[in-house]
Design a protein around this nucleic acid. Sequence first.
RNA 1: GGGCGUUUAGCUCAGUUGGUUAGAGCGCCUCGUUUACACCGAGGAGGUCUAGGGUUCGAAUCCCUAAGCGCCUACCA
Length: 904
Amino acid sequence: MKELPKVYEPKNYEDEIYKKWEESGLFNPDVCVEKGVTEPKAEHFSIVLPPPNVTGTLHMGHAAMLAIEDVMVRYHRMKGDRTLWVPGTDHAAIATQAKVEKLVMEKEGKTKYDLGRPEFLKRVEQFAQESHDTIVNQARKMGASLDWNREAYTLDEKRNLAVRTVFKKMYDDGLIYRGYRVINWSVKGQSTVSDDEMVHVERPAKLYYFKYSKDFPITIATTRPETKLGDTAVAVNPKDKRYKQYIGQEFTVDVGAADPLKIKIIGVDSVESEFGTGALGVTPAHSAVDFEMYQKQKSAGNDIGIIQVLGEDGKMTSAAGNYAGMSVLEAREKFVEYLKKNNLLEKEEDIVQNVGTSDRFGDVIEPLPKLQWFVGVEKPFKIGENELGIKKGTEVTLKELMQKVVKKKQIEIIPDHFEKTYFHWIDNLRDWCISRQIWYGHRIPVWYPPEADQPGAGKKNECFVGVNPPDGNGWQQDSDTLDTWFSSGLWTFSTLGYPDLDAKDLQAFHPTSVMETGYDILFFWVARMILMTTYVLGGVPFKTVYLHGLVRDEQGRKMSKSLGNVINPLDMIAKYGTDATRLSLLLGNTPGNDMKLSEEKIAGFRNFTNKLWNISRFMLLNIEEPKADIKEPKAKTLADEWILEKLNTIVNKTSENIEKYNFSMAGEELRDFTWGDLADWYLEIAKVEGDKSEILNYILNSILKLWHPYMPFVTETIWQEVYGADKMLMVESWPSIVILNGVKNPLTSKREGSFAKAQDDKFAEGFEIIKNLISGIRSLRAEFKIEPAKKIGANINVGKRKGLVKENEEIVKALARLEKLEFVESGAEISLDLVGAVDIEKEKPRLEKEIAEIKKYVVGLENKLSNKEFVDNAPKAVVEKEQDKLSEAKSKLEKLEEQLKNLV
RNA sequence: GGGCGUUUAGCUCAGUUGGUUAGAGCGCCUCGUUUACACCGAGGAGGUCUAGGGUUCGAAUCCCUAAGCGCCUACCA
């Protein structure tokens, strides 16, 4: 065994350790089974990594995700589960394309049209490849135990086949349709933007009140005068007495558009009489709401017509007559001018308006009518064989499926309040527009015959939808690509072999165990995976959704380049090590809440990794011959029993916490045990008592295992330094829970047996010693007139903590301290401060207050227990518990009263 | 407008089904190098748990009201 250096230097070990892990092949569950590490029939535990976009580099959010998932994966692997963690990356269609467009423009001064589709796509792919390599290597740096053999890309061949297969299935079931709709158009991006990709921005705007012409009876209000050139109706509330009489009438007005406008007055319930003038100019082509009105009127036999006055290039169309070719702002100015000139403008009002802008391109979204592909979420279809508890052949909608699986707890969301948000979102869900006018992505598997005009024409097109192109010449594939979330929605099963339903991985690892991701993509992604999986496989994609928060800077701001507050995980790894970086992301936060991260926090955990290193170092100095598979040894002293008991508890707690997704709690308690109980107390005692080789060996092995999921590198390093490289901690078995020489009473869950008894005896003995010590200090203080006592035995004061076990703990600590104290005292002077002192002035009122409170409490309990209703009706166990509490409180009261007496 | 979350020590946050003296880390103060660790050890100061009301013997915890902060969402033209 090599001697460990004094300070742990992560960079000397990490890369080498990761290489060893990877070369061992043990990230792959099949290899684990082959090598006998995992039982072939063991339960499966699987996670599919939320694929990072290939647009960038690893950020703290990724790091947090990798750390959390790696904890679960390593824990389950050590526990003996067949554990799979599938890596992958996302093509992030719009984001990637936009980035490459920008790069090409910067470097070559060319647009994508200059390059042409095939050449441009080549550039994108090249960029994606490079970016992919970077990000994948960064994931390795984080220590992520991903099975790289199974790596997937959302845009590779296999995933493309899955996409085409699902598209066809949905089309055949009538769930995918093509429709002429008002969609969100980004002029700058020349593409549709989904509702989710829109960002609403508040900005000041003007509300113009005007009439189309002098003899038009109704004044309307608008913030978009230029689109009014495309108005075909005015909507009023049918109950509105002012306008009721006009409903059904048609007026012809000339505002300068190509043709005079025919404006029908229609009654619509949703129009608010109080807002503006209570009348709304209907522009079917340039407002989603108005378009819906138009459709409703049309299906009721009243075709009010639709006029598109704004084109995809952001300029007014020929339908806008005098205004054709102008930009939105020019047209607006000119139209307002026209209204003023003709005395049609009644007033202008300053208001604050919420406008939708494109997240990617930053420009204001223009609603435009366009032919698009949609997934109908409210269209009923007959469900096939399924594991959802729905009878085959029942008519359901996608929306219903999405609601059902969460409502019935077939999928659990952590933290659970996100379920509310989820349902709220689904209630408001509309048909999902899945076509995008961009080049990088899954091409829509639809072909049009040679004579058809495609896409975008209003004509009825015959088209072919298939997994593969149709036979015959001249067929042209739809030029659009699919929304990136369409392929992401298939991710849990497209990575496991779908569309081959018999694929080994699909059978062995689906549904996955946990989906761990940021809450910000609950709707984008998680909801879509649920949609796709319930529909395609008739099952759930995962059993649990664990949502982590966003990583923010110290002040709670988003980390961004422009703010210059980005903490780069790679820098932190270089400076403090991966383990410290992981701990800083795992401890001190709760699921679903954003976490604030600072460099100091990471530095703090670096200190802890070093502490663990030195704890191990010290233990190794006292272990004669380290054994990797040592059984739990017998305790020789009270301190031994105490630490073994503590260890046992922490094994329990850690396992339970990890399984309940309390990663932060698990780590914190383990840290308290390691640092507080083990290092600060037990190792100090060990120095005095000596002869602890076996126990130290046993504890060392246990804590290395317990810490391994959190700090894989330092623990594996120590393990291999001690036991050699052929023993890998990563696949050692998780510590099991051992029953000490006491047996737990199932009713009280209190330990009975010799250990408990020994503790009680020691308790009494220890209490006596402490009492003497304290009174000794008091008299010394009086004798030497030492300043008024500040505290006596604050840390050994038995009454400080509640509960028998904890009191015992204190005693064990106190005893150890007493020994230590004597040791120190033998040197020379008595250092009273080591024990502390009590401030009588403060102590007395405190005690009095507490006594009063407990008295009240006792009275309360007595009342409760003398209440017949309670005693008769409450379960026996509860009554007994209350009785226990009462006697406990009474004895506590006695103790306190005695304390008070002693004090005075 | 609708929804959700949050407010606990100077800072970052825990606090499991209401329970007796509300915890941790960092920071701060005092002291200290003894078989690992100064990236350390011992001790200490610091909280009317946002405010007000209610339920209860008992509330940081449950209910109501209000305020601050934050996020999501939306078809007030």
